[in-house]
């Protein structure tokens, strides 16, 4: 498995760019959270973003679907530029799936209803068809038997797998993962990572904020290291871990690997 995915990483035959971020800046009040971000993500590419807390990595991916607004520079997703135009924002959000640290399932809806809500209301898919798709993806994340339960009755790992399936039901072109395993108990991390690796194997474009170095080594094409709002270093996983260039990267790696 490692080899197969690694190979993809090595020969990097990038498809056309699907996300282009150029000279992007963001401030929270006076605080400069993101500084001159330049990043191009190609179709089928998988990128891991790591870095110390407060480095702006979550904020960066939240800018991609406008959960946060950037103040300077350009973000183009699937050919559409993110501006204040609500129509554009909604169009981009349809194409970009997001998985959150705290799952954010809708507690008042059953698992099945969580999965069909987006397709039915946003994509206008007929209900029966949406349910069929939902069951297909639940099967895929190995949780189909829980379809009629409510989120509150599931474990954290199960909830996160449902959240991934919920995003997939919208058939997104890009998936964003915002620290998908950091709120999970240790024994549940693997079941979520396994689902993500399956997804990677199918060629989904993924941007993952995570410190799961195992996942980065086996599934990512590129690893980005961020600190204090800047992308400090960017490399293929093997090089990144074995031969970090920047002092701060070395320090960070020594802290999380020991």
């Amino acid at each position: 498995m490692d080899n197969e995915l690694q190979k993809n990483g090595d020969d990097r035959s990038p498809g056309e760019p699907i996300i282009e971020i150029t000279e992007m800046h963001k401030w929270f009040g006076d605080f400069h959270v993101l500084k001159n971000i330049n990043l191009t993500v190609h179709k089928g590419e998988r990128i891991i973003i790591c870095g110390p807390s407060g480095s702006g990595k979550s904020t960066l991916i939240r800018c991609i679907n406008r959960l946060e607004e950037h103040q300077k520079g350009r973000i183009i997703v699937d050919g559409i530029e993110l501006t204040n135009d609500l129509k554009n924002i909604e169009k981009i959000r349809e194409e970009v799936g997001m998985v959150f640290q705290h799952f954010n399932l809708f507690p008042h809806l059953s698992i099945l209803e969580n999965l069909t809500l987006g397709p039915v209301w946003v994509r206008k898919v007929p209900k029966a068809e949406a349910e069929e798709t939902a069951m297909y993806y639940l099967e895929k994340v190995h949780i189909a038997e829980q379809a009629l339960k409510y989120p509150g009755q599931l474990s954290g790992g199960q909830q996160q797998r449902v959240a991934i399936a919920r995003s997939l039901c919208m058939r997104p072109k890009v998936m964003l993962f915002d620290e998908p395993t950091s709120a999970l108990d240790p024994e549940m991390i693997k079941e979520v990572l396994d689902v993500m690796i399956d997804l990677a194997r199918e060629g989904m474009t993924m941007i993952v904020v995570s410190h799961e170095m195992g996942f980065a080594k086996s599934a990512a094409h590129r690893v980005l290291f961020m600190d204090e709002g800047e992308i400090l270093e960017e490399n293929i996983p093997v090089e990144f871990f074995e031969n970090p260039q920047h002092e701060r990267t070395k320090l960070f790696l020594s802290q999380i690997l020991h």
């Binding site: 959000r93 970009v96 954010n104 809708f106 987006g118």
Partner: peptide, 28 residues
């Protein structure tokens, strides 16, 4: 905040978000 963000990140508009996600929970 997470419920709003999850609803928004799906592409639901304001009325759908309120009617389908936020109000059912808040009113309960």
């Amino acid at each position: 905040r997470g419920q709003y963000e999850a609803a928004e990140s799906m592409g639901l508009n304001y009325y759908q978000k309120m009617r389908l996600i936020i109000l059912p929970q808040a009113l309960k």
